[in-house]
Amino acid sequence: MHGPATSGWLLVALCAATGAYCLLRLRSGVEEQRRTAGDEALMGFGMAAMAVPAAVYTPPQWAWPVYAVVFGAAGLRALWAARTGGHHLHHLVGASAMVYMAWAMAAAPGHGHGGSGLPPVTGALLLYFTGYVLLGGARLVPVPAVAGGPHPAGWGDRPELARACRLSMSIAMVAMLLTL
Results as ranks from 00 to 15, higher is better:
residue 6 T to V: 15
residue 36 T to K: 13
residue 28 S to W: 09
residue 64 W to F: 13
residue 104 A to D: 10
residue 57 Y to F: 14
residue 40 E to Y: 00
residue 111 H to L: 01
residue 87 H to L: 13
residue 105 M to T: 11
residue 63 A to L: 15
residue 101 M to C: 08
residue 29 G to L: 06
residue 69 V to K: 10
residue 27 R to D: 14
residue 106 A to D: 09
residue 85 G to V: 08
residue 94 G to L: 11
residue 49 A to K: 04
residue 10 L to K: 00
residue 105 M to K: 12
residue 47 M to K: 00
residue 80 W to A: 12
residue 71 F to D: 12
residue 109 P to G: 02
residue 94 G to H: 07
residue 37 A to C: 01
residue 27 R to P: 02
residue 8 G to Q: 07
residue 78 A to P: 14
residue 113 H to M: 09
residue 35 R to T: 14
residue 99 V to G: 05
residue 22 C to V: 05
residue 64 W to G: 10
residue 28 S to Q: 01
residue 31 E to D: 11
residue 54 A to K: 02
residue 65 P to G: 10
residue 95 A to S: 13
residue 97 A to S: 14
residue 72 G to D: 02
residue 110 G to M: 01
residue 56 V to P: 01
residue 107 A to Q: 13
residue 102 A to Q: 10
residue 66 V to E: 09
residue 110 G to T: 00
residue 23 L to W: 07
residue 7 S to C: 09
residue 21 Y to I: 08
residue 12 V to S: 13
residue 93 V to P: 03
residue 78 A to M: 03
residue 20 A to L: 15
residue 87 H to N: 15
residue 42 L to P: 10
residue 112 G to A: 07
residue 68 A to Y: 05
residue 47 M to P: 10
residue 113 H to S: 12
residue 9 W to C: 13
residue 51 A to R: 06
residue 111 H to M: 06
residue 113 H to V: 09
residue 53 P to I: 09
residue 24 L to M: 14
residue 83 R to K: 12
residue 114 G to I: 07
residue 25 R to I: 13
residue 68 A to F: 15
residue 80 W to D: 07
residue 112 G to Y: 15
residue 11 L to R: 09
residue 48 A to Y: 13
residue 38 G to Q: 12
residue 42 L to T: 06
residue 31 E to L: 08
residue 74 A to D: 06
residue 75 G to T: 12
residue 107 A to L: 04
residue 71 F to N: 07
residue 42 L to H: 01
residue 81 A to D: 13
residue 49 A to I: 06
residue 13 A to L: 15
residue 53 P to Y: 12
residue 95 A to C: 05
residue 49 A to E: 10
residue 78 A to N: 01
residue 110 G to C: 11
residue 67 Y to L: 00
residue 32 E to Y: 08
residue 56 V to M: 04
residue 77 R to W: 02
residue 83 R to A: 12
residue 111 H to G: 06
residue 42 L to W: 08
residue 85 G to A: 10
residue 24 L to Q: 13
residue 98 M to V: 11
residue 21 Y to A: 12
residue 40 E to W: 09
residue 103 W to K: 00
residue 30 V to A: 02
residue 92 L to T: 05
residue 39 D to P: 14
residue 60 P to W: 05
residue 26 L to W: 11
residue 89 L to E: 09
residue 71 F to P: 02
residue 77 R to V: 02
residue 73 A to F: 06
residue 79 L to W: 15
residue 35 R to C: 13
residue 56 V to A: 11
residue 30 V to T: 03
residue 23 L to H: 11
residue 38 G to A: 13
residue 73 A to Y: 03
residue 83 R to E: 13
residue 36 T to N: 11
residue 47 M to I: 00
residue 37 A to M: 06
